[in-house]
């Protein structure tokens, strides 16, 4: 039942991985503070890529640059060859960048299904005057969109919550609704902001399975920020470690996470872990 809406990898040139997201020389300054310095990233079509690093390393800022909430001081960001920097957030969403937020950012006065319908916003076309009518193209489009949203919910096992208000759901389910909302837009690239944050330890393995399933069954490229190394090791094909806005290492998780510089970045700063990252999300995302 879910086959219809899945977007399999578009072309069967296979084997030869194509670059989906390309970040070059990304630099972000906030006042005198350099949040991200001359960062290069390359995310291939269909892979799971993780951006890790201590708090305040600039991971969320990178994500916000890709979504368009933060304008970089210099550098370029391309999606499948198309320059993103000239585009607003909503245009990027239409090009196929979906995203979840660490703190959910769900539409709390809506039902789960309606959240997904907003997630599909850029795939719908109905204009003002069509939308006023009880019949016609807008309503047909709407019915189809509801159908698809229900399919997404079913695929994630959320169908029984479709008409519940999101505010009444437990936090874990809300997280999943956030993903469902992003998936409803049928993105090519899904940005996940700390999917494991707040997930109890015993659920972490299940989460990793989920991530791999989305990647495999939807052919979806995932770019995630994550603190939980268990998840990162379990799912990411490649990772990039950031520290103070700079790339420390990049490559396969098993190798990268053993590098002395990486270990030091974590252990050395364990003490000063603070809420900086948290502040970053709300500050930058709001802009």
């Amino acid at each position: 039942m879910s086959d219809e809406w899945q977007t399999a990898p578009q072309e069967a040139e296979a084997h030869q991985p194509r670059t989906l997201l390309e970040v070059q020389g990304l630099t972000v300054r906030f006042g005198g503070l350099v949040a991200v310095a001359d960062l290069d990233l390359r995310v291939e079509e269909g892979e799971i890529f993780a951006l890790v690093g201590p708090n305040g390393a600039g991971k969320t800022t990178v994500l916000n640059c890709i979504s368009g909430f933060v304008r970089p001081s210099s550098g370029s960001i391309r999606l499948a060859g198309q320059d993103l920097l000239a585009l607003g957030t909503e245009r990027r969403a239409a090009l196929g960048i979906g995203r979840t937020f660490q703190n959910g950012q769900l539409f709390s006065s809506m039902t789960v299904l309606e959240n997904l319908l907003v997630g599909r916003h850029s795939r719908l076309r109905a204009g003002l005057f069509q939308s006023l009518l009880p019949i016609g193209p807008a309503r047909r489009e709407e019915a189809a969109a509801r159908q698809r949203a229900r399919e997404v919910l079913a695929w994630l096992g959320l169908e029984s919550y479709a008409d519940r208000l999101v505010a009444t759901l437990p936090a874990g389910l809300q997280k999943l609704v956030g993903v469902a909302r992003a998936l409803a837009g049928e993105p090519r690239l899904l940005l996940l902001d700390e999917p494991a944050a707040g997930v109890p330890l015993r659920e972490v393995a299940a989460l990793a399975d989920q991530l791999r399933r989305w990647n495999a069954e939807l052919g979806l490229t995932l770019l995630l920020i994550e603190h939980n190394m268990e998840v990162v090791q379990a799912v990411a094909q490649r990772i990039c470690v950031l520290n103070y806005g700079r790339k420390l290492a990049e490559g396969e998780p098993a190798t990268v996470l053993r590098e002395p510089a990486v270990l030091e970045a974590y252990l050395g700063r364990e003490e000063e872990i603070d809420a900086r990252e948290e502040g970053e999300v709300s500050d930058h995302a709001a802009g």
Binding site: A93, V118, G185
Partner: peptide, 16 residues
């Protein structure tokens, strides 16, 4: 309604 509930998320969903 989406931009009332969360402007950030609305934009990320493609709402201009």
């Amino acid at each position: 309604i989406a931009l009332r509930d969360s402007e950030v998320a609305a934009a990320a969903c493609g709402v201009a």
